[in-house]
């Protein structure tokens, strides 16, 4: 059962990843990428790493890809223009890809560079285990990565912030602090005697109507 599910998810994942790079429309490519992320989360659930799987969906599918899609949709892309240089750059790309492929084969097949396979450890709820490990054994690396992310965030804000002179901002504090007395002037007036309205003549009335 698990094996069948694995092959289904793996097939979907490979197909989705292929469509990401072959889809003509960038928005469609982003959607295929979302499918790929979601399917890899499913694969992780088969490995009983439910926390990692769900965080992958929360972070990548729920937040990162939303903003990504947001940006891609707003771009005014000329698809013909994008595909123009394909055959010109193809030889260089092919050489790079071939070198990478050879390197991967060397690493994965060499018996001196054997990577130990992942061991499935039977523990309790993975979230609790993960929390214990992160905040005890791996406390320092965890804090370092947090600082790294913070620096990245500040840098991104610092790079993109710019103040234009003619921009108008709302000042919510001032808006809330406004009192009615600042906007409306209430005049105190004495009551005045009613004037006798002059009675219009019947003849004027007819003229006005005519």
């Amino acid at each position: 059962m698990t094996l069948a599910l694995f092959y289904i998810f793996a097939a979907v994942l490979v197909f989705g990843a292929l469509r990401v790079i072959t889809a003509k429309n960038p928005v469609h490519a982003v959607l295929w990428l979302i499918l790929s992320f979601f399917t890899s989360a499913c694969l992780w659930i088969l490995l009983k790493a439910e926390f990692l799987a769900v965080s992958l969906v929360v972070i990548y599918v729920g937040a990162v890809m939303v903003l990504f899609l947001f940006v891609v949709m707003m771009l005014d892309l000329n698809f013909e223009e994008l595909r123009k240089g394909f055959w010109k750059f193809f030889p260089v790309a092919a050489v790079v890809a071939a070198i990478m492929l050879v390197e991967m084969i060397l690493v994965l097949t060499n018996r001196y560079a054997q990577i130990p396979g992942a061991q499935l450890v039977e523990t309790g709820p993975t979230v609790r285990e993960l929390g214990l490990q992160i905040y005890t054994t791996y406390f320092l690396p965890f804090q370092l990565s947090a600082v790294l992310l913070l620096v990245g965030m500040i840098a991104a804000i610092g790079l993109t912030i710019r103040k234009r002179k003619n921009t108008k901002y709302q000042q919510p504090g001032e808006q809330i602090a406004v009192k009615a007395a600042d906007r409306v002037r209430v005049l105190k007036m004495d009551a005045e005697a009613r004037l006798e309205a002059p009675q219009p003549k019947p003849a004027d009335d007819q003229q006005a109507q005519g």
Binding site: V54, S55, V57, G62
Partner: peptide, 20 residues
């Protein structure tokens, strides 16, 4: 689920794609 709460957050965050 052990991660029921996170699951709800993950699944509900997918809904926004439909709107976009």
């Amino acid at each position: 689920l052990n991660v029921g709460l996170l699951y709800v957050m993950a699944i509900t965050s997918i809904g926004v794609y439909g709107v976009i």
